[in-house]
Amino acid sequence: MENSVINKKSEPASSVEPVLQVKDLNLAFNTPRGQAKILEGVNFDLFPREILALVGETGSGKSVTAKSILNLIPERSRETRGQVLFGVKDLLTISGKELGTIRGNRISMVFQNPQSSINPVFTLGEQISRLIRLYLSAKINDLKFKTQCSQKQAVESIAREKLNEVGLTDIKRMLKLYASEVSGGMAQRYRIALALISSPEILIADEATSALDVTVQAHILKLMKDLCKNKRTAILFITHDLGIAAQICDRVAVMYAGRIVEVAETKKIFKNPLHPYTRGLLKAVPKLGKNKPLSFVPGIIPDLVSPPRGCRFHSRCDQAMDICHKQKPESLKLEDNHNVSCFLYKE
């Protein structure tokens, strides 16, 4: 569609090929009131080993974008257009069988609510063993050969090693527990261990720390960052928390009402936000010590069944011009790989 040029050649290293390219992703749900256009031309690249934050308000389409990458949204009552390129493969069109070889193996995902994303009627041990048998059969055989142990022992010792990596202790006991018997922090560490078993090229973290309390959150963030550095995994980090994005991410993509409105390096976007929405978001972050009333972006996310014409943000924008009501802004590539979709920066 109109903005296919977004960060084609982005840093960190402009010569490096992206591992994942989302191109002009459109997604609409058929609702009784009409089609809700949830995503409208989402474009971004994810480069090897980088951490890219996808930030935005609730309802901006972050999670839908993440789930669309692995084609996890049920097919009934949805329409999708666009491409999700992983290497040369378009994940939206390849067969279910082929997708099965990528899901969990080369692209993993961690979800928002750790306890509800673990099957409640199987032990943690059962669930991790299945994935170990699925992805590490070579390692199991290796271990069986070296230590002359049984298949079960080999799987268990790998499980112990993997759970140790994410900082879990007392694993022998833990393997016999169920999801309802562990804390949120433990459950999320466990989920991260599961996601990293296959040493994936990409980890998608969909609000992975939002349901945890702040101290646990900090641990998990550090853990993810370290592990991915070691395993050379790129992370797509979806969050509504700008603070977290600033802490661990290399680049930030800001999403609003189904579109990415600004992409830049973390430092640049925090120092010099260009899009009026990004500015509003940054102003709305509460600061300690300053006794000022909290700022916010006025208005709410528009109804996506009948989205506003032109720029989807114009009704909440304090710098809206005539053209904003009529035309959709294209993504403009400015210096330092700073991309923004706003008419303010069009010459």
Partner: peptide
């Protein structure tokens, strides 16, 4: 089949 844990398991590559 609509629960989170099924989607999470699907995302981790377990066959349908």
């Amino acid at each position: 089949m609509d629960q989170d844990y099924i989607m999470a398991a699907r995302a981790s590559g377990i066959s349908e």
